[in-house]
Deep mutational scan, measured.
Amino acid sequence: TFELKGKVGKVVKIAEDHYLVESEGDKWIAYSDEKLSLGDRVMVVDVDGLKLKVKRIP
């Protein structure tokens, strides 16, 4: 299986209740415990079905 946990991506869209993150050339629906901005670099900390939980990284 394709393992996304630990992968790095970038926030490419902000929606009302989720983010769109591009990682490894694909776009994924993501959510975070912190507020993210367009262009933020993020790391995948968990995968919930087809949704990614991400956190901001420097």
Rank of each mutant, 00 (worst) to 15 (best):
G39Q: 09
L38T: 08
H18G: 13
A15Q: 09
V45E: 14
V42M: 01
G49Y: 08
F2S: 15
K13L: 10
K53C: 10
A15L: 09
A15T: 10
V42H: 00
V21T: 03
V54K: 00
R56T: 12
K10S: 10
D40N: 08
M43P: 00
P58G: 07
K13D: 13
V42Q: 00
D46E: 06
T1E: 15
V8T: 08
D33V: 07
K55I: 15
V44Y: 04
D17M: 12
Y31K: 11
D46I: 04
A30W: 01
T1D: 15
K55M: 14
V44M: 02
S23M: 15
K10F: 06
V45R: 02
S32P: 01
W28P: 00
I57A: 09
G39S: 11
V11H: 00
K10H: 09
I57V: 08
L20Y: 13
K53I: 07
S32Q: 02
G9M: 15
G25K: 05
V42L: 02
E22M: 07
V21Q: 00
G49N: 12
D46R: 02
K27L: 10
E34G: 07
G6A: 01
V54P: 00
V21A: 05
F2V: 15
S37G: 06
L36G: 00
G9I: 02
S37H: 05
G6Q: 01
V21K: 00
L20T: 10
S37Q: 08
V47E: 05
V47A: 04
K13G: 11
A30H: 00
K53D: 09
V47T: 04
V44C: 13
F2Y: 03
S37R: 07
E24S: 04
D48Q: 08
W28Y: 14
L52N: 03
G6V: 01
L20H: 14
K13T: 10
V44Q: 01
D46G: 03
M43V: 15
V54M: 02
D40F: 05
K55W: 08
V8L: 14
K55D: 14
K10L: 12
E22A: 05
K27N: 09
D48M: 05
W28Q: 02
K51Y: 12
E3I: 01
V11R: 00
H18V: 11
A30G: 06
E34R: 06
I29Q: 12
G39T: 06
R41F: 11
V44H: 01
S37C: 09
L50A: 09
G6C: 03
S32D: 03
K27D: 10
L52Q: 02
K7M: 05
A30Y: 00
V21D: 00
K10D: 11
V42R: 00
D33F: 09
D40H: 05
V12M: 10
R56E: 06
G25S: 06
L50T: 07
H18L: 11
G39F: 13
L20R: 06
K27Q: 06
L50G: 11
T1F: 14
Y31P: 00
I14A: 10
L36Q: 02
V8F: 04
S32G: 11
V45T: 11
I14Y: 08
D48S: 04
V47N: 03
Y19R: 00
K51C: 13
A30K: 00
K10E: 14
L36N: 01
D26A: 13
S23Y: 02
M43W: 12
K5V: 15
I14C: 09
R56N: 07
D33S: 07
R41E: 14
R41W: 06
Y19Q: 01
E3F: 02
